[in-house]
Simulated scan of single mutants.
Amino acid sequence: MSTTASCTIGTPKAASASFASVSDSAARAAADRIGYPLVAKLVSPDVAHKTEHGLIRLGLKNADAVATAYDEMVAKARLMAGVRIEGVTLEPMLQGGVEILAGVTRDPVFGWMLTVGLGGVWTELMKDACHRLLPVDAVGAEAMLRSLKGFKLLDGYRGAPRADVAAAAQAVAALGNAVLAGGDRLREVEINPLLVMPEGTGAVAVDALVLLTEHADAKVEEAA
Rank of each mutant, 00 (worst) to 15 (best):
V139W: 02
A69L: 06
A102R: 00
K149R: 13
L153M: 11
L90T: 09
G150R: 01
A181Q: 13
G159V: 06
A173V: 04
L133G: 11
R162C: 12
V179I: 14
I100A: 00
F151D: 08
E99L: 11
G97R: 01
S147R: 11
M73Q: 03
P161I: 04
V165S: 00
L180H: 05
I85N: 01
K127E: 05
P161Q: 03
R146Y: 14
R146P: 02
M113Y: 08
C130Q: 15
Q95I: 13
E91G: 09
A173H: 01
G120Y: 11
V179E: 00
S147I: 11
A160N: 08
V139G: 02
A160G: 03
A168F: 05
K127Q: 12
L79Q: 10
A138R: 03
V121Q: 15
P92R: 13
E86M: 00
L134Y: 01
R84K: 15
L134G: 10
V88W: 00
A181V: 07
A69G: 12
G97A: 09
A81G: 04
R146I: 09
A163K: 02
F110K: 11
P161E: 14
L154Q: 01
E86Y: 12
A77H: 15
T123L: 15
M126N: 07
K76D: 13
V139Y: 04
G111R: 13
